[in-house]
């Protein structure tokens, strides 16, 4: 693992790409990392392609420029891959994780990815519908990210996330369990 990991999230306005970046940063902070999370602000509207970013490091992060060469790219909406170049700037040994029911091989063919970039898929929409009851793919994608990168301790992160959710959703235990289950399932179901 490198000292600093740079991550880019692709989603559509209103889908939770910014929230996903903040969630990850918060989780990473919980395990003693230094973090940065920031959205890309363009002309915002519901449904328009948007991006957000994370930097996770074992040392203080001083860098304040944009993330142009991410180590990991996560895609919340599979239809985005038709209109957005999701592999733009991704490092040679980079990782792409896509929310889709398709296999990594299919995606690789579709996007014409030939290099060493590793492609993973997970049906995060299906998982979130079955566990949380709504199509909120960002939470399960977090699970997939943990599995693929190993950047954070899985058990620790789950516990930390549970604590944070318990604070936020005191009166709704089903939301807490649903979110935790979503992360766990995606962790186990992500395909390479």
């Amino acid at each position: 693992m490198k000292e600093m990991t740079e991550i880019r999230w692709h989603g559509r306005g209103g889908q939770g790409a910014k929230t996903a970046a903040l969630l990850l940063a918060d989780a990473a902070l919980g395990s003693g990392k230094y973090v940065q999370a920031f959205p890309e602000y363009g002309p915002e509207r519901m449904g328009a392609p948007v991006a957000s970013f994370d930097r996770i490091s074992s040392k203080p992060i001083l860098l304040h420029s944009a993330v142009t060469n991410p180590d990991v790219v996560l895609v919340l909406d599979p239809t985005l891959i038709e209109s957005v170049d999701i592999t733009e700037g991704v490092l040679d040994d980079g990782i792409v994780i896509i929310n889709t029911e398709k296999s990594p091989a299919d995606i690789r063919k579709e996007l014409n990815i030939t290099g060493k970039i590793k492609v993973y898929t997970v049906d995060a929409s299906k998982i979130s519908k079955e566990t949380i009851g709504r199509d909120i793919p960002n939470t399960p994608l977090l699970g997939a990210l943990l599995k693929v990168t190993g950047m954070l301790d899985f058990k620790e992160t789950i516990e930390d996330t549970r604590k944070k959710l318990e604070k936020k959703f005191k009166s709704k235990p089903e939301v807490i369990d649903g979110n935790i289950k979503a992360i766990e399932r995606a962790y186990n179901e992500v395909k390479s």
């Binding site: 903040l22 920031f38 959205p39 992060i61 304040h64």
Partner: peptide, 12 residues
């Protein structure tokens, strides 16, 4: 602070 870069960037 610097707009968006700091104002909207989450840090430790």
């Amino acid at each position: 602070t610097d707009g968006f870069i700091i104002s909207h960037g989450m840090e430790r």
